[in-house]
Write a protein that binds this DNA or RNA. Structure first.
Lengths: 186, 186
DNA sequence: TACTTATCGAGACACAGAGTCTCGACAAGG
DNA sequence: CCTTGTCGAGACTCTGTGTCTCGATAAGTA
């Protein structure tokens, strides 16, 4: 079956960006924004939202993933210690800006399987970056997975319980702890 | 101002327990149960629910806290290694039973400040138990707090992203990791 | 140019669930 | 017996979701 060539009016890219923008802005202040409010803020009809996204959370998720594409720290200081410290301090200190969005997305993931799947994909990609950093420096697979769980575990745990994110110093100390627990064998 | 002695019909304890029971049972299968469904399952009028609880999540939270009162493992094997291993294996392997309830409560805590506060209290009490275990064996405050964050961080992180809870062996290995990262000074 | 197709903003609409209100019945104390 | 507060039950309002329809518009095709 060959795909029929596209006909008709094309999707309005400006409208798409206005919607993503409005969603991020409004969700930041109120996790319970209405679809109508997002549409109004974007200067768009409600049907335009439902044409392209299944729920308002799918809008937020898409916007968030596009935002995150730019901000993936991948330090290369030459040492495991230096790279891990740089990665964790950058990750933790930047968490506060996006905290309300992440909290909303994680909450929605608990009731909507589709959101959960997409959020899992997102977290898996973040894990992959840190995993690459670790294995590049010779950390074994078992050690690496444990460090991943602990690093992102602490990040999300504090985030969701509304505890302040780790400061730069605390994140650096955390990195030292994680290094100290690696299998002595390596 | 003295409190006026109570008059009128007293609260029906049987109804209260039926409501808590029904809430736990229904929330387990569907995070989006309606208030009407809980009332019907408990054989109770909706107004009875609203008279005693502000939201359906408050019902679940109260039921959950009562449940949890019975199940607080506090091992005493004599060694830090033994106690921590026992505590973590018990905590992680029992997490699956209550996973759907915890996920629902954490999700609600992201939008309702009152639920967040109560959930914080709950998690603080759990932290206190593990903290007591650690300090009893001479672990320093800084080390202890870091271990608490990591232990409960990993638990919640895997729970909320719908990853399988750690098995007994994995939890034991996790305990060893945490011990290995303690400040060498002690 | 004319025709076709799919999008656009806007708004009406149906539907579901939260939360309030009222009712007559009932239990406990004065 | 009288007052008070709870009980189960159901009607009711209100808000937000999601669908449907409308005329207008943009893009490709004949």
């Amino acid at each position: 079956m060959t795909t029929r060539p596209h006909t008709g009016r094309r999707r309005n890219e400006a409208a798409r960006e206005a919607v993503l923008d409005a969603a991020v802005r409004l969700f930041r202040e109120d996790p319970d924004v209405t679809v109508a409010a997002i549409a109004a803020a974007a200067g768009v009809g409600k049907q335009t939202l439902y044409r392209w996204w299944p729920t308002k959370y799918a809008i937020l998720l898409e916007a968030f993933i596009e935002m995150g594409r730019a901000v993936v720290p991948e330090p290369d200081t030459g040492t495991l210690d230096g790279d891990l410290t740089a990665f964790l301090t950058a990750t933790f200190t930047r968490a506060d800006e996006v905290a309300p969005l992440l909290r909303t997305l994680m909450a929605e993931a608990q009731r909507d399987p589709a959101t959960l799947t997409t959020l899992q994909d997102f977290t898996d990609r973040r894990r992959a970056v840190l995993r690459g950093l670790l294995t590049r420096h010779g950390v074994g697979a078992e050690d690496a997975e444990a460090v991943l769980d602990q690093a992102y575990g602490v990040l999300w745990y504090r985030l969701l319980l509304d505890r302040p994110a780790l400061t730069g110093e605390q994140a650096a100390a955390f990195a030292q702890r994680l290094l100290r627990q690696l299998k002595p064998a390596r």
